Deep mutational scan, measured.
Amino acid sequence: ATNIVGKVKWYNSTKNFGFIEQDNGGKDVFVHKSAVDAAGLHSLEEGQDVIFDLEEKQGKAYAVNLRIK
């Protein structure tokens, strides 16, 4: 899925991951530091509006192509 809109539920910059809540009511999506770095960001803030693509690997969904809304 592409261009999914959501809000950062939480992001832990020490542990380098967090979760994004989808605006469409879907399951929360894992986001890793690598996606944050690829977006040219240092971190994510709770409540921040983002747009992302959804990829699945080994049955787990995660956010890629992250951008600030």
Rank of each mutant, 00 (worst) to 15 (best):
A1M: 12
T2Q: 11
N3K: 06
N3G: 09
N3E: 08
V5H: 15
V5F: 13
V5L: 09
G6N: 01
K7G: 02
V8G: 01
V8E: 00
K9M: 04
K9N: 03
K9T: 03
Y11A: 01
Y11I: 03
Y11G: 01
N12P: 02
S13R: 09
S13I: 13
T14G: 11
K15A: 10
K15P: 01
N16M: 12
N16F: 10
N16Y: 12
N16W: 08
F17Q: 03
F17A: 02
G18L: 02
G18T: 01
F19S: 02
Q22N: 07
Q22H: 10
Q22G: 08
D23V: 15
D23W: 15
N24D: 07
G25L: 10
G26V: 11
K27V: 12
K27T: 10
K27F: 10
K27C: 04
K27G: 10
V29L: 04
V31G: 00
H32L: 04
H32Q: 04
K33A: 11
K33R: 10
K33N: 05
S34R: 09
V36Y: 03
V36L: 13
A38H: 09
A38G: 10
L41A: 10
H42L: 11
S43P: 09
S43K: 10
S43H: 11
L44S: 01
L44M: 07
E45H: 15
E45K: 14
E45M: 13
E46S: 15
G47N: 09
Q48G: 06
Q48Y: 07
D49I: 15
D49W: 15
D49F: 15
V50A: 05
V50L: 11
L54I: 14
L54T: 10
L54W: 06
L54S: 06
L54V: 11
E55T: 12
E56A: 12
Q58W: 15
Q58G: 14
G59K: 08
G59Q: 12
K60E: 08
K60S: 11
K60I: 07
K60P: 04
A61W: 14
A61F: 13
Y62D: 03
A63Y: 00
A63W: 00
V64N: 08
V64F: 11
V64Q: 09
N65K: 08
N65F: 08
L66S: 00
L66H: 00
I68M: 13
K69A: 03
